[in-house]
Simulated scan of single mutants.
Amino acid sequence: MTAAPTLHFCADPGEFLADAEAYLAADPVVGTVVASVTRRMAARRAEGVALPEDVWWLVVRDAAGAVVGVAMRTAPFPPRPPFLLPMPREAATALAEAWHQRGERVRAVNGALPAARACADEVARLDGGRVAVAQHTRLHLLDRLTPPAPVPGALRAATTDDIDLVTAWFGAFTADADEQAGRPRGASAHETPDRAELLHRIRDGRVWFWTDESGAPVHLTAANPPSFGVARVGPVYTPPGQRGRGWAGNAVAEVSRRLTAEGARVCLFTDQANPVSNRLYARLGFRPVVDMVNLVLVD
């Protein structure tokens, strides 16, 4: 009989990275969310910022001690969904059983398929409810950049003087994305970084505007700093009155060119229910890597 996988929870992002670094580095594209979020939280902790007491990271090991999966629960927004990377099915179900035994109420699970679905199904079996899909997402990697037709204007880095507009557009991104995908506005639970975090990103040079010929911002594209050589673009936001003019394609292409020039591979997520953005990124040269999902437990 094959030994069951072992689950090791920890509350220290540095401890988690020490255990999981080689695993994340082996597939840094699929691991982009876990790597970037964990490194950001480790950096904030080093700066003296206290992390919430109930966040955790997980390392899954097989019988030989090899890491075969990781997960985290760091989302500050309700229902605070854990995020799973690919792992054996028995590990995904064991994770649900561990939550049940710990008395940890989980009513949403995000992450890679099929692990996220197996985990959510086990949560439903143990704690009741049924599993519903809130959003299907797809992770894409830039293969070879194909620049779009040029449009007037230029890319410029946001400055701290732009913080109010950056905050507003980050906040509008999720609601507008829901609407574009045919969901009610605000249907998707999503983290909007606070002002302090956005200032960090601006100072790091990871937030850009596309400006029109008059110099006015008409679009925002942001990116995460590279983790294990992979930089993730997002959010990508154009206000409703500025859509259909090519701002997004040109901004994402130029940001991707700059990130590639820094030596990073570039990835991004799309909402599978939004055909406009999926077609745009395919034309730019992004290719699908893995399907992910946001699941909710409906009582």
Rank of each mutant, 00 (worst) to 15 (best):
R243D: 03
R243L: 00
R245K: 14
R245G: 05
R245Y: 01
R245S: 02
R245T: 03
G246V: 02
W247V: 01
W247M: 01
A248K: 13
A248V: 12
G249T: 08
G249P: 14
N250C: 08
N250I: 00
N250D: 06
N250E: 07
N250P: 09
A251L: 15
A251M: 11
A251N: 12
A251K: 13
A251Q: 12
V252K: 05
V252A: 00
V252N: 03
V252T: 09
E254H: 06
E254G: 01
V255P: 12
V255Q: 09
S256M: 01
S256P: 14
S256E: 03
R257P: 10
R257K: 12
R258K: 13
L259V: 12
L259C: 11
L259S: 14
T260D: 03
T260Y: 01
T260F: 06
T260M: 01
T260R: 14
A261L: 13
A261P: 14
A261D: 15
A261Y: 06
E262K: 15
G263L: 05
A264G: 04
V266S: 13
V266L: 10
V266Q: 13
C267Y: 01
L268C: 11
F269S: 01
F269I: 00
F269R: 00
T270H: 07
T270C: 10
T270F: 04
T270E: 03
D271C: 03
D271N: 14
D271Q: 09
D271K: 06
Q272K: 11
Q272G: 02
A273R: 15
A273T: 04
N274T: 13
N274Q: 07
N274L: 04
P275F: 12
P275A: 12
P275I: 10
V276N: 10
V276K: 11
V276Q: 12
S277C: 05
N278I: 07
N278T: 12
R279W: 00
R279P: 05
L280I: 12
L280A: 10
L280G: 09
L280E: 09
L280K: 10
Y281R: 10
Y281C: 05
Y281K: 09
A282V: 09
A282F: 07
R283K: 15
R283N: 09
R283D: 04
R283F: 03
L284R: 14
G285A: 07
G285W: 02
G285M: 04
F286K: 01
F286L: 00
P288V: 02
P288A: 01
P288F: 06
